Computed example of a mutant assay.
Amino acid sequence: MSPARALDPKLFDATIAAVALLAGPEHRLIYTNEAFTRLFGSRTLGLPAPEAFPDPDAGRFLSVLADVRATGRARQVTGAREIDLGAADQAARFVYSCSPVTTREGTGILVVAMDTTPESRALQRYEALVSAISQMVWVMNDDGSMEEVVPGWQHLTGAPWLGRADKGWYAFIHPRDREKLGGAWRAATGPEGPRVFQSTFRVRAADGSYRHMSTRCVPVLDEGRVTEWIAATADVEDTWGHT
């Protein structure tokens, strides 16, 4: 078997997702893209992770890094948290994944974060009404499978998430929206190359009614190949223009 090819971080210079690359047993920070700097602020390259991320709430992130290095398995952290953007009334929400990779400096960890702030701000007007189901964020593998439950899905539909986007998921989509939703996904994953998937559709709730949901899904690429999809889904029923 040939050795794994080292990941070239320049691939992520212009990506929408925030990306950082750490290498070695100390998880030294060797790369961040512009999206990462915008979301988390400027970080000093070359420092071990505890020094590069001295934030008071960075303990969970450092723990995830240690777990990924110890197990060799990717971790997907779906619980979004808030970070201060320097204004009392502003905050950013994000979800991130950590994946083991081979770098030019040896084994490393690729961190990919998705800013879900736009969806969060849109929800603030009615968060008190639908706080339990207003937003779901998750990470899917390249084949559509997931290792973690999508938060909020069972509360919304009354049924557990089955671990894949294609196992029973369409049964909860309004029949009139299925073709449009499927077409948008095929366009995002078609032969012209992966692109951002975005669609608004109706999902059947546990009480039998339908609620409008808006989903935006971003592909994470490695040498032009999709390694995973990071998505945010918001309940927009209370802001949807009824006719």
Rank of each mutant, 00 (worst) to 15 (best):
P3G: 11
R5G: 12
D8E: 15
K10S: 15
L11Q: 15
A17N: 14
A20V: 01
A20H: 01
A23K: 00
G24Q: 03
P25C: 04
E26T: 13
E26M: 07
H27I: 01
L29C: 06
N33P: 00
N33G: 01
E34I: 04
A35Q: 01
A35H: 01
T37I: 12
L39F: 03
S42D: 11
S42E: 13
L47V: 04
P50G: 01
P56A: 15
R60K: 01
R60W: 14
S63A: 15
S63P: 04
L65D: 01
A66L: 10
T71K: 11
R75W: 09
R75P: 07
G79R: 12
A80S: 09
A80E: 11
D84I: 04
D84S: 09
G86T: 04
A87I: 03
A91F: 12
Y96P: 00
Y96R: 00
T107W: 06
T107H: 10
G108I: 08
V111M: 10
M114I: 08
D115H: 10
T117V: 05
T117S: 13
R121H: 02
Q124L: 14
Q124V: 06
E127F: 08
A132G: 06
Q135S: 03
Q135T: 03
W138H: 11
W138A: 02
N141G: 13
D142A: 15
D143V: 00
M146D: 04
E148G: 06
P151Q: 10
W153R: 08
H155S: 07
H155V: 12
T157L: 05
A159Q: 15
W161K: 02
R164H: 09
R164C: 10
W169C: 01
W169I: 02
Y170N: 10
F172M: 07
H174Y: 14
H174E: 14
R178E: 11
L181S: 13
A184E: 06
W185K: 03
R186I: 07
R186Q: 14
A188G: 05
T189Y: 06
T189I: 12
P194G: 11
F201R: 00
R202A: 00
R202Y: 00
V203N: 01
A205K: 05
A205C: 14
A206M: 13
A206V: 14
Y210S: 12
M213L: 14
T215K: 02
R225E: 12
R225A: 15
V226D: 13
V226G: 05
A232R: 07
T233S: 10
E237C: 02
D238C: 05
D238Y: 02
T239Q: 07
W240H: 13
T243S: 12
